[in-house]
Design a protein around this nucleic acid. Sequence first.
DNA 1: CGAAACTTTGAGTCGGATCAAAGTCTGTGG
DNA 2: CCACAGACTTTGATCCGACTCAAAGTTTCG
Lengths: 238, 238
Amino acid sequence: MPGSALPSLLPGHANMTPELTAIHALRTGLRRAPRNTAVLRAGDGGVRLRTILEGWAFRCRILDDGRRQILGILLPGDTFGIETLFGGAADHMVWSATAVQYATFDPDATERLFDDAPWFRRRLMRAMADTSSAMQDWMIQLGQCNAEERTAALLMLLYERLEARGLARGHRFRLELTQVEQADALGLHIVHLNRILSRLRARRLIGMRGPDVDLLDIDALSALIPAPRQPLRPDLVS
Amino acid sequence: MPGSALPSLLPGHANMTPELTAIHALRTGLRRAPRNTAVLRAGDGGVRLRTILEGWAFRCRILDDGRRQILGILLPGDTFGIETLFGGAADHMVWSATAVQYATFDPDATERLFDDAPWFRRRLMRAMADTSSAMQDWMIQLGQCNAEERTAALLMLLYERLEARGLARGHRFRLELTQVEQADALGLHIVHLNRILSRLRARRLIGMRGPDVDLLDIDALSALIPAPRQPLRPDLVS
DNA sequence: CGAAACTTTGAGTCGGATCAAAGTCTGTGG
DNA sequence: CCACAGACTTTGATCCGACTCAAAGTTTCG
């Protein structure tokens, strides 16, 4: 899906373990970007590890002729730019969907901690693996699912992610993406997405008033989303 | 795209640097799997780092109702199962497209080397980042490109990857995937893929005789594939 | 030689894209 | 506070790319 549940690399103020304190110390800056600006550009070199503190952003790639695919949605608490830690330039761009606040990490201190602290390495690598896994979830949707399935999956996923970090409850949330952006995440044309949303509304599966989404019938929505095939239990096969 | 250009973790016999020798020492086993079997199952726990030595395989996910998306194609030299190094279970399955031979790595020794050798860590993380990047390449194709663009891109990509490791030349290669598999990689129906291939053949862009593919008109094929928008040069923008 | 797997072709349908235009919202400046 | 412009959403009408169903060829392999 667009949007992965990256473990936050930045602590709140409660539950400060030594590790979180160490991560906190890497924070060198707090930046703001207005809506609709590049927060990280493809090709940017150097270490640019960042965590969204407020607002929504998304990772995306753009083709020559302007077609754009949103690769993942970044919510408060999500970290991006991990790939810049290993010498590669950023391979995609991060764009703000709302005004955002994000924390930047000191490149040298981060690299040092990465080299010295096994727990930090594991945490980063785990974050990377999670992002990969989330992209795989979304690839199967893009390749195999129809517009309705994808749309339902996106809405459910965003709610779950927001809910998990206390940014939404009661099956309601504020969807901080325009329909153009949603369509680019889903690989659909806006007009078609709009009709799918109308249909879901007409069937009372969701309610929408402006950016406010209400998942009225979670069961029905879940039923729309195809489940992954349960892997065979490893101990039951050779 | 399905298929990433993973740096090989296994050396040939020429150019043995100390690092490659160290990696070589991690190899504990050589296994064979017939065509059409699971080489790595989703949910498999424990460290299962492996390198394809011979044959083709692919990473994939499957939905309840049988729909399958191929996430990446593994060629000789490609390493998979990196994500199993960080405590997570494998989140997708690896399936053999031909009979394959693959090397397995000793889990404990691998973890030890990972903890002790910065160069090894970087190599693995780089491999992971490359896989991610390749998946992003393919996501934009799945979401934004039509059947012809995707098909041309897949064929070109496979040739380039094979050519880079000396497994193909002269714009010819043996495509070791059935059309069903190609279709599952491209997110297309077989019947439609078959027609796209016929059309490319009729236009003399490609030649196919059985599994043997010949990219007859590289320029025309490249022209079909939309280019990524060049990132703004970082030094030219703020 | 026969069965199973795979490829190819035909005909028809449908989901989603495209083109066009009317509404609605948002923010900005007067 | 209002007016206006630009961005965004919604709806209608039409078209085409891709899917579906069906069946005939072809290859592969036991």
